[in-house]
Amino acid sequence: MSPLLFWVFVAIMLFFGGMVVLNRNPVASALSLVVSFLALAALYVSLDAYFIGVIQILVYAGAVMVLFLFIIMLLDLKAESRRRLNFPATCGGFLVIFLFVTVVADVSHRFEGGNAKFQAISQGPQGDVWHVGMVLFQHFNIALQVVGTLILVASIGVVILSKRELK
């Protein structure tokens, strides 16, 4: 991917990620998050992770964000009024964020290997999904079953949680 496209997608991702936080209206926040996830999927594709990019669009930008929008509209949330910020918590939070970004920038700056060009890859005629599937079903089969059980438990939990009267 050309550097120009990379920075364009990074800018879209960060701008709309910021809009998620800054928007007062929850629906606008959710839609900004969808755009941010789409740009993120483009970054995945630029890293030759086509399967994860497609999953990102289908699962995140599709299913999960529709669920978010559904709940926001179901609860009929209005744009929230401005409330006074908890000043010490905000200052401390920004200090932590500043330190975090500084550490990431410093580590990347010193990490010489990270400035090298990505090595060329050839995924062969099978393509990306085949390789991901082989690793997933051969080396991580147990984990895959566990995650499937987790989703089953989660859906049962949701049914119980959304009953009118908890007993």
């Binding site: 975090f100 990431v104 990505f118």
Partner: peptide, 26 residues
Amino acid sequence: VTLNDYLIASGLLFAIGFAGVLLRRN
């Protein structure tokens, strides 16, 4: 485009998410 560019983009996105958790009350 190098790995460091991706790492910095990832770090900034994480920082935005963290700021959201701290600043928003919804």
